[in-house]
Design a protein around this nucleic acid. Structure first.
Lengths: 139, 139
DNA sequence: GTGTTTGCAAAGTGTTTGCAATTTA
DNA sequence: TAAATTGCAAACACTTTGCAAACAC
């Protein structure tokens, strides 16, 4: 990531503030890596490596904390495709995923590309939080 | 599980043989626990406890091996809802799942209760292996 | 007998935790 | 200064591995 293409500092800063997250040096740096305009699917390890590569001193524990805080604040969405690894998706709008089983790669499917016409009612006393559609392909 | 309600020995035995799996004492015992007629969602730990409770001496490693072998042989289907835990579903027909986020409980949705009318094409050079629909509810 | 399967204990993976030191407002 | 956040290292939960002993055919 070239510094010239990064989002303005203030934009990311506002985003954190609006989410009620104190804009610490670490959170700010991670947020700038994540919310660079592209839709991304990152694991904690990946983001940590990326941060180190960019000379951002941050511990893995803080990366985990931040990813979860961003997820709670709806800045990220967590996707589970694979037992034993979590991915975080910077695209929080309604959409689904291709999962390439061989490579472990994840790719967005725009929301309008999938239509679910028939759905069961939520079990009594519950509310549907989200419907995840994962199309598993052998790529 | 009452012994009187268990599947006949020979039925489970044939099932293993047809899958090309040597019907060892452990595989046979685990298969009898799993394929008792009900649709079940089990984790390795759960199945291991169940086996011990039923006085079947089997190691956790063997439970893992067997679950994966059964899955490869299409006697089971693996479901991932939760990073860090695998569930195995004895229902291998087309169907989907409710996932109760609070309790971690998993429940089948019959295939005919969900209709996906519009689907993207598989990415070039790939084949769709399966479409998983997971309805996350807060139960 | 021969190749397969098992059990064990150890190693591995990804994630979380407890707590003192640091930083933010 | 008070409360929130961080880094570290240890703990954690779940899963896989290596290999000698046991087993199925």
């Amino acid at each position: 990531m070239n510094i010239a293409t990064q989002r303005p500092f203030s934009q990311v800063l506002d985003r954190l503030r609006m989410a009620g997250l104190r804009p610490t040096r670490q959170r700010l740096a991670l947020a700038r890596l994540l919310f660079d305009g592209c839709d991304r699917h990152v694991s904690a390890e990946q983001l940590h490596s990326e941060a180190l590569a960019a000379n951002i001193r941050v511990s893995l524990a803080t990366v985990y904390n931040s990813l979860h805080q961003f997820t709670s604040a709806a800045l990220l969405r967590e996707i589970v495709v694979d037992a034993g690894r979590s991915y975080f998706d910077t695209n929080t709008s309604e959409h689904h995923h291709f999962f390439f089983e061989r490579s472990g790669h994840l790719e967005d499917i725009a929301g309008h590309m999938v239509t679910v016409t028939k759905m069961p009612d939520a079990p009594a006393g519950t509310t549907i939080r989200r419907v995840d559609v994962i199309v598993r392909v052998d790529g």
